[in-house]
Amino acid sequence: MTPRQLKAFTSVAQTLSFARACERLHMSQPALSLAIRSLEQSLGGPLLTRTTRQVRLTPEGAAFLPQALQLLADWDNVRERIKQRFTLQTGHVTVAAMPSFAGNVLPRILRDYRQRHPNVEVAVHDVVQEQVVEMVATGRVEIGFGFEPEGESVLAFEPLFIDPFVAIVPAGSPLLAAPSVSWAQLLNHNFIALQRPSSTRRLIEESLAAKGMELRLALECHQLATVIQFVAAGLGVSVAPSLCQQQVAALGARSLKLSRPSIRKPVGLITRADQQLSTAAEAIREVARDSVDHAEGSRRPRPGV
């Protein structure tokens, strides 16, 4: 059955007139008759009886009429709901973001998104980088916000900005006497790091190894917030993405520019390379680009950087 056939039948059934049904539907009488005949053939019997003077419903036609009207109503409802999703009058999107991004950049993106599309529901998973990558790769979320994933051919990455790592030191540290600190200076203090398989830990170790330096640990733990709290308590020093500077200050530690070697890592959008985003998710991508572009001090990476 097609909507055209159902509309032809219901119009004749409600008006009991082929002529009036033709006027209502703006169809020719041969086209109307063909639509009803095709419907009757598909169902297996007549729905209408027609004489030169009148049109009547057969018993089967009378039984089918309310169901046909419901089918048309359902058809219109489904079509309208899909149109609303395409026009972002309604919808739902799920994203994942590493905590440093979720706590510092994502609120601005979601604020702008809600202003543009207030009727779209957004679910956010604030999880560590490795889980962001896993959730996008397995299709649990459409978009992830985090560092560029390594060795994931199924994923696509679009950088939004380059984030330098900063040193984290206690509030009373003598290192705060200078505006920046080198790795050589930092490694003279007890170092606190995230446990493996943290991508941040791996990046730090690889960057230091490339300069012939070794990371010797005093403490390690799973959560970056815990690392910062340990530093604030005077147990040692650490490093973190500059995205975390607001969190560092809130937890009572201090951050410093870090050099020799400088560690920088792209932060951006992670999606599946083989899947098209929903309209709602595509809109989040557009808002993220705009929001980062207009943020004070943000820097979009140049091609080839």
Rank of each mutant, 00 (worst) to 15 (best):
A209Q: 12
E130I: 02
I143V: 14
A68M: 07
S33V: 14
P59Y: 04
G61T: 07
D163P: 00
T15Q: 13
L203K: 13
V136S: 10
L34Y: 11
A178G: 05
S182H: 09
Q245H: 06
V132M: 06
R254I: 02
I36V: 14
C244S: 15
A178E: 14
Q14P: 02
T2K: 10
Q5M: 12
R272D: 08
L65T: 02
R114K: 15
F101Q: 00
L34E: 12
S198N: 08
R114F: 08
A167K: 11
F165R: 10
H222L: 13
Y113I: 01
R289T: 01
P164L: 07
R302N: 09
S182T: 15
P99V: 02
L251T: 04
R140Q: 14
V237G: 03
L243T: 12
R216W: 04
S259P: 01
L251K: 01
V181H: 03
Q245G: 03
E214D: 09
V105P: 02
Y113G: 03
L47G: 04
G91R: 10
M1P: 13
V231F: 09
Q185E: 15
Q84G: 07
I263P: 05
R285C: 14
V154I: 13
D74A: 10
S255N: 07
S278G: 06
L25H: 08
A193N: 11
Q195R: 14
D112S: 11
P179A: 01
S198C: 06
G45F: 05
A31I: 08
G252N: 08
P107H: 03
A171W: 03
S242N: 11
V305E: 15
P66Y: 03
F86R: 15
G146Q: 02
R196Y: 08
R254C: 11
R299Y: 10
R272G: 11
S17Q: 04
Q67L: 15
Q276M: 08
R53P: 00
R79N: 03
F145P: 02
S238L: 05
A137Q: 10
I192L: 11
L217D: 02
I192H: 07
I204E: 01
L43R: 13
G45E: 03
P261V: 07
S182Y: 06
L69G: 01
M1D: 08
Q195T: 14
A73E: 15
L47I: 03
M135N: 07
H92R: 13
E148V: 09
A171F: 05
L34T: 11
Q54G: 04
L219V: 04
A281Q: 09
T226P: 00
E205A: 13
G252V: 08
